[in-house]
Deep mutational scan, measured.
Amino acid sequence: MFKRLMMVALLVIAPLSAATAADQTNPYKLMDEAAQKTFDRLKNEQPQIRANPDYLRTIVDQELLPYVQVKYAGALVLGQYYKSATPAQREAYFAAFREYLKQAYGQALAMYHGQTYQIAPEQPLGDKTIVPIRVTIIDPNGRPPVRLDFQWRKNSQTGNWQAYDMIAEGVSMITTKQNEWGTLLRTKGIDGLTAQLKSISQQKITLEEKK
């Protein structure tokens, strides 16, 4: 169930391209415009997507990853294993993690069937560096609404905000991946996880038929 919630949630996290980005210092504006741009692209490019579902990787690479804190999220997933990894191991892992996100997020976007969304009203940021933004996803086919909290983090150097995690039903996506990959990290280390991520990233994206 959580895996499905995570995939549905990713439908609204794909941010804007650099040329049309919203105010990078306001995570609420980023979330709002990102959702609108993403849904528009999914709707307008269905012919290309249906002809070649792996085209979704391109959308992810162009529109999402430049505005997601990939390395920060990847380091959180590694936890204690990050500090013990060599620079070469980290570089290989982050490259594999990025390719994994292209496949995983692309597969999530393949679930698009006309969903709509509501974003919580903007709250004062103050001096906060981590801000959760509640998004409610509404399914046109009558499924119950899904309420999610996207975690946005302020870059201490640039002042810009980027998304790095999502919490559904009190469970963090980062925590879920830590639990899912924990045994592999304990037995085969970061190299074993890197190899698995490379394998997963090679899987073809498949479209979910409308139910």
Rank of each mutant, 00 (worst) to 15 (best):
T175W: 10
N26V: 05
E180T: 05
L56N: 05
P47Y: 07
N155M: 00
T158F: 07
R134M: 02
D54S: 08
Y117M: 08
A168Y: 06
Q103V: 15
M1T: 01
T187W: 08
P132G: 07
Q115Y: 02
Q202C: 12
R186W: 02
T86A: 08
Q118W: 09
P15H: 14
P66W: 03
I59K: 00
N26Q: 08
L10K: 00
L125F: 15
G170L: 01
T25E: 12
R147I: 03
L207F: 15
K188H: 08
S17G: 14
I205T: 14
R90H: 08
W152L: 04
M166I: 09
I130A: 02
G192M: 14
Y112F: 05
L185G: 10
S84Y: 12
L207W: 14
G74V: 00
E208V: 14
Q89H: 05
L16W: 11
L64W: 11
S201E: 14
T158Y: 03
G126M: 15
D165R: 00
R41A: 08
K210M: 11
G142H: 11
L64G: 00
D191N: 05
T58H: 08
R4E: 06
D40F: 05
S17A: 13
I205W: 06
F94Y: 14
Y67P: 01
L11I: 11
K29Q: 14
A34I: 05
I133G: 02
T58M: 11
Y93C: 06
T136I: 05
A14R: 03
P140T: 13
T176D: 00
A34S: 12
N26Y: 06
V70G: 13
R134S: 03
L11H: 00
E63R: 02
P140H: 14
Y117G: 04
S156A: 03
I59E: 03
I174P: 00
R4C: 12
L56T: 07
I13H: 03
L78C: 09
T86N: 07
A14D: 04
R57I: 15
I174A: 14
K29V: 12
Y112L: 04
N179W: 06
V70N: 14
K71N: 05
F39K: 01
K204S: 12
T20K: 09
L65R: 04
A51G: 10
I200Y: 06
R98M: 07
R50I: 15
V131G: 04
L10W: 10
G192E: 15
Q62L: 06
T187K: 12
M1F: 00
G114A: 10
L65G: 06
A96P: 10
G74Q: 02
K71M: 03
P145F: 06
T175G: 07
L78E: 01
N179F: 15
M173Y: 05
A95Q: 07
V171T: 02
P27L: 05
E209S: 14
W152H: 04
N141K: 07
P121Y: 15
W161T: 01
L197H: 04
M166D: 03
G192C: 14
A108L: 06
Q89C: 04
I205R: 03
M7C: 04
F2K: 03
D127L: 06
Q123M: 14
R186H: 04
F39N: 01
R57P: 12
L64R: 00
